[in-house]
Nucleic acid binder design. Structure first.
Lengths: 109, 109
DNA sequence: TTGTTTTATTGCAATATTACGATAAATGCT
DNA sequence: AGCATTTATCGTAATATTGCAATAAAACAA
């Protein structure tokens, strides 16, 4: 069906899945890594940096922005994107809680 | 097009995206959390635990197994699934490297 | 052997995602 | 005003994902 039955899961499970989905495409990983790498805010050079068309990049940026991981400031005709530090921190703590769970029986299988 | 242009990205970016994709569905998050929660290996009660049909659960398990995050041992007619500790550790380190990057200019936007 | 239980596979329908051309919107420049 | 630059949105085509009924496969039980 292609439709996730969100009602079956806890709020936390749905939230984690939404976050992970954002990282589930290499273009969005590349965008975030570029925003981490450069010294200043990036404006439109993501299109040159990654080999995708401008509307495609814009769409990926929209998703990341919608999730709150990045924010964009309009500067003339350009838009300056960067990581949202506060939201990144929150996301990180959710992800880490999930990743750091103790494995119950390492020798069970 | 619905097709990720993997050639555009680094090996690391593609790998991270593949891992994240596994967590990008609440059913798989729920499966993993259940495997973490229970004391012993789970056999077939995931279908009861999560409210999805048996073929659907089986498909999600297949994806997690393919990625190496879980392993399954055949025990009679049943299959015992559990987290793969070694692969989980490796995956965790990849994810954490990504999450722990330093944010360059917190006040840039 | 026959039936039961459990899991995997197949086939298909419904929905989601990805990518991009065309175009719009907003700003700056001359 | 007219034109260039940059980004967002719309529309659409191609592919991927999700979910399940039906069925197969494998092991056990009587």
């Amino acid at each position: 069906m292609g439709l996730a039955k969100t009602a079956l899961y806890t709020k936390e499970q749905n939230e984690l899945a939404l976050i992970a989905k954002a990282f589930g495409h290499p273009a969005r990983v590349a965008i975030l890594q570029y925003l981490f790498k450069i010294e200043r805010c990036v404006c439109g050079d993501l299109v040159n940096e990654i080999g995708l068309a401008q509307p495609t990049i814009s769409q990926h940026l929209k998703e990341l922005k919608h999730l709150g991981l990045i924010k964009g400031n309009i500067e003339g005709t350009r838009v300056c994107y960067c990581i949202d530090p506060e939201n990144w921190k929150n996301m990180k703590s959710i992800m880490k809680d999930f990743l750091d769970q103790d494995i119950p029986n390492p020798d069970c299988c």
